[in-house]
C-alpha cells in the first residue's frame, strides 16, 4: 500500500487560515488501511480543525467526505455537485488525491493533508516499512525476495557495503541492512553462488529517472 503520515496540524491550519468553509476528503484505499486518510481520520482532522478555529474565535464549517478512492475519476466525480459550496478542500489521500481533485475541479483550492511516504507494508499494527521504489523492473527474485533498490540506503546491487554492522545499516541502528538479510537468506537456501555473479549496470530508464511514467492497457480501454 501507499503509506503516509498526517501533516502537522499547524501546517494544515495555516493552509486554510483564510477559509470559512472547508471539505476534508478522505480515501478508502491505501490510506484507510494505514490509518492516515480514511473516514475515521477525516473525522479526527475535521474535529481538530473546528476545535482550533473555535478556540481562536474564528469559526469554520468543516464537512467530511470519504471517497471510495481518490485515484479514479469516477469517484472524484462524485463531489461535482458540492465542490462549489466550499472555499477549499483538504485531501488526506496520498499525493495522487489532491492532484486528481485539482485536475477534476480546476477552480477549487485543494490542499494536501498528509505527507506521502512510500510503498510498503505493515510490519505490525501501527508500524509500516518501505518495500518498493517502483523502479519498473522488479528483480527481488535475484536477492532472496528482498529489494536492494528500496531497502539498501545506497541502492547497491552488490552489497553489503563496508558500513554493514551486526545486521544493521551504517545510517542507523534502526535500519536493517537488507544485504545482510539477502546474504543470510541465500546462504540458508544454499544459493550463495548467485551472489558471486556481477550484476550489470541497471537500466534506470524504467524508473522515475526515465521521466514521468504511464501504463497503457489497450485491452482495458473503453
Amino acid at each position: 500500500m501507499i503509506v503516509g503520515e498526517r501533516k502537522p496540524l499547524g501546517d494544515i491550519l495555516d493552509m486554510i487560515k483564510d477559509y470559512k468553509k472547508v471539505l476534508v476528503v478522505g480515501c478508502k484505499g491505501c490510506v484507510t488501511v494505514c490509518n492516515v486518510g480514511g473516514e475515521k481520520e477525516v473525522g479526527i482532522l475535521a474535529s481538530s480543525i473546528r476545535i482550533s478555529r473555535k478556540k481562536d474565535g474564528n469559526e469554520i464549517t468543516v464537512d467530511e467526505r470519504t471517497l471510495e478512492r481518490q485515484c479514479d475519476p469516477e469517484y472524484v466525480d462524485q463531489l461535482k455537485d458540492i465542490v462549489s459550496d466550499y472555499d477549499a478542500m483538504v485531501s488526506i489521500a496520498c499525493g495522487v488525491g489532491p492532484q486528481f481533485l485539482a485536475e477534476r475541479y480546476p477552480d477549487a483550492a485543494v490542499y494536501p493533508g498528509i505527507n506521502t511516504q512510500f510503498m510498503g507494508g505493515a510490519l505490525e499494527h501501527g508500524v509500516w516499512a518501505e518495500r518498493c521504489q517502483g523502479c519498473g523492473a522488479c528483480l527481488v527474485h535475484n536477492f532472496g525476495g528482498h529489494c536492494p533498490i528500496a531497502r539498501c540506503s545506497k541502492s547497491l546491487l552488490h552489497g553489503p557495503c563496508g558500513g554493514s554492522s551486526g545486521g544493521k545499516c551504517e545510517i542507523s541502528k534502526d535500519v536493517d541492512c537488507v544485504w545482510h538479510l539477502i546474504v543470510e537468506k541465500l546462504a540458508k537456501q544454499g544459493k550463495m553462488d548467485s551472489l558471486r555473479k556481477l550484476v550489470p549496470t541497471k537500466n534506470w530508464s524504467t524508473s522515475r529517472d526515465g521521466g514521468p511514467r504511464k501504463v497503457v492497457r489497450e485491452d482495458l480501454k473503453l
Binding site: P8, L9, G10, L13, I51, S52, K55
Partner: peptide, 8 residues
C-alpha cells in the same frame, strides 16, 4: 498531542 499542536 493534537491539543498541543493547536495551542491548547
Amino acid at each position: 498531542k493534537v491539543l498541543e499542536e493547536i495551542g491548547m
